[in-house]
């Protein structure tokens, strides 16, 4: 027997066993009740999760925890995480920031606001980054910037596509200018991946705003907005204060972004996996 095949079999087996406990984050609240923010409908967390975090009563899309998003999307057991313990630092020595991070960690079960790794989707290997709004509104500080940057670097090295599920309140204020610089850092990583002729798909989920919209989230080859997502650069309140009038209904919605030409499609949650699978298949090989 081929010794390499044998070795691969053993490694796969080890991988399968070590990933059995996965996903860990969402499971701690198995018995809790989730309330829909829109209609107030209550359901056990497990049921909501099985329904892809869509309210069974009113159909509203709830925010999806990063690991649940990954299991919704990827072939079972295929996800391997990068830099799981990576944290940023506190360049401003900002009062209360350490505490805020602690709270975010216990609330989300994550070390930072993005989970990155490789996975297979419908059999296609890809790099995947999922931002989780439960962690300080998935704001981008040094850790988020670094993890996304490293994910792109890995993709360039291994000639893989990158899929990002963007969600963010913007740059993380507490890390000051270093957060702002992550816009340049992540954009440079996208540019290098782009030059290597590799596919980058960005899925804009609720909400994608500020510095993330003004950097990597707007630079994809294929941009998908998830139904019901709010997507924009400036906040609604800031715009209203600046122009002195109220903004119309549906301003900065996913549909608005498609109408204005800033995303390729608006896709419902249940169809995301299939659409992304198809996109990956079409990009698997060009004619030259």
């Amino acid at each position: 027997m081929n010794p390499f095949k044998e070795r691969k079999k053993i490694l796969d087996e080890i991988g399968r066993i070590s990933r059995l406990a996965f996903p860990s984050a969402g499971q701690s609240e198995n018995n809790s009740i989730v309330t829909c923010e829109k209609c107030g409908h209550k359901d056990p967390a497990e049921e909501i999760k099985n329904n892809l975090y869509i309210c069974p009563e009113c159909g509203a899309y709830m925010k999806v925890p990063a690991y649940d998003r990954i299991s919704m999307l990827c072939d079972e057991g295929s996800f391997r995480e990068f830099n799981k313990g990576r944290t940023g630092y506190d360049p401003l020595d900002f009062p209360g920031y350490e505490n805020k991070l602690k709270q975010a960690r216990s609330k989300s079960g994550l070390k930072e606001a993005v989970v990155t790794g490789t996975a297979r989707i419908s059999g296609h290997r890809t790099v995947l980054c999922v931002m989780d709004p439960a962690f300080m509104m998935a704001s981008m500080g040094t850790a988020v910037g670094e993890k996304i940057f490293l994910a792109f670097e890995y993709a360039v090295k291994k000639k893989l596509p990158v899929i990002i599920f963007a969600a963010s309140g913007g740059a993380r204020m507490q890390e000051g200018i270093m957060s702002l610089m992550q816009m340049a850092k992540t954009s440079a990583a996208v540019a290098k991946h782009d030059e290597a002729g590799l596919l980058y798909i960005c899925v804009l989920t609720n909400p994608t705003t500020g510095g993330v919209t003004a950097s990597f989230a707007s630079l994809a080859d294929v941009t998908i907005a998830e139904k019901g997502a709010l997507v924009g650069f400036a906040g609604k309140r800031v715009i209203e204060q600046t122009i002195g009038e109220e903004l119309p209904e549906g301003f900065q919605s996913a549909e608005f972004q498609m109408e204005k030409g800033f995303c390729d499609m608006v896709i419902g949650r249940k169809n995301l996996r299939r659409t992304i699978g198809k996109l990956l298949a079409v990009h698997e090989r060009g004619v030259r």
């Binding site: 919209t213 924009g232 650069f233 906040g235 715009i239 122009i243 204005k260």
Partner: peptide, 12 residues
């Protein structure tokens, strides 16, 4: 941070 700026893709 204007309405039209947003419509014409300030972030992008």
């Amino acid at each position: 941070p204007g309405k039209e700026a947003e419509e014409r893709g300030q972030g992008q």
